[in-house]
């Protein structure tokens, strides 16, 4: 399997098989909270992809070159990086792309507490390529962050689609809101089992 093949497997894995939301249970708050409308889900998804990709590359460098011997600072360093990054991204977007800021702005601060972002950063430090041997390099980490964000966005959008549809029907009262969202997540997780065991 060439490098491209490995990247492909990484993508399939991050998006479908080991989807951050459905199989690792990370990023559930925004998944359940910002999935009521397709538009906002799309905005959130884009913001997450952006931040996850950036975070993955920066935390890789921090982990590799700054934290050597001080692994106990990993959590604190990563979370500060993410917080700073989100702040920075927010400022940049606000200045350079006010229209984008208008649609993404509200979601950006939420990303700080999106555990999927911290999760990707932490998991990247110990992850191996699909060959099962090689640790991630800078590019792998960045790509993995990107794919994980895409995986998050895909399920977020699907969820938003279903929930918008359910808005129009008569749900049982006790199921409205969180319960139905959780059951939907369960159903999606079951459906995503179809991707299990992909061997390319």
């Amino acid at each position: 399997m060439g490098y491209l093949g490995q990247i492909f497997v990484m993508a399939i894995t991050a998006i479908f098989i080991q989807n951050y939301v459905l199989s690792r249970f990370l990023g559930l708050c925004p998944y359940l909270g910002v999935s009521k409308k397709i538009d906002s889900a799309f905005g959130m998804g884009m913001a997450v992809i952006f931040v996850m990709t950036l975070t993955s590359s920066i935390t890789y460098l921090i982990n590799r070159y700054l934290l050597t011997g001080m692994m106990y600072l990993q959590t604190i360093a990563f979370i500060l990086t993410i917080a700073a990054l989100v702040q920075f991204v927010e400022m940049v977007i606000q200045k350079k792309a006010p229209a984008l800021y208008k649609s993404l702005g509200v979601y950006l601060p939420l990303i700080t507490t999106n555990c999927a972002v911290l999760g990707v950063a932490i998991l990247n430090t110990t992850a191996l390529r699909p060959d099962g041997i090689t640790p991630y390099n800078f590019l792998d980490s960045t790509l993995n962050g990107f794919f994980s964000g895409v995986g998050f966005t895909v399920v977020l959008l699907a969820m938003a689609g279903i929930r918008m549809r359910l808005e129009l029907v008569n749900l049982p009262k006790s199921m409205k809101g969180m319960p139905i969202a959780l059951i939907l997540a369960g159903i999606m997780a079951l459906a995503f089992y179809g991707f299990m065991g992909f061997k390319i």
């Binding site: 319960p179 959780l182 059951i183 369960g186």
Partner: peptide, 17 residues
């Protein structure tokens, strides 16, 4: 498994409701 986690919690919340 993951689906069970979601569905169990969802049903529990419905019961709470």
């Amino acid at each position: 498994l993951a689906p069970g986690a979601f569905i169990t919690l969802g049903l529990l919340m419905a019961v709470m409701n």
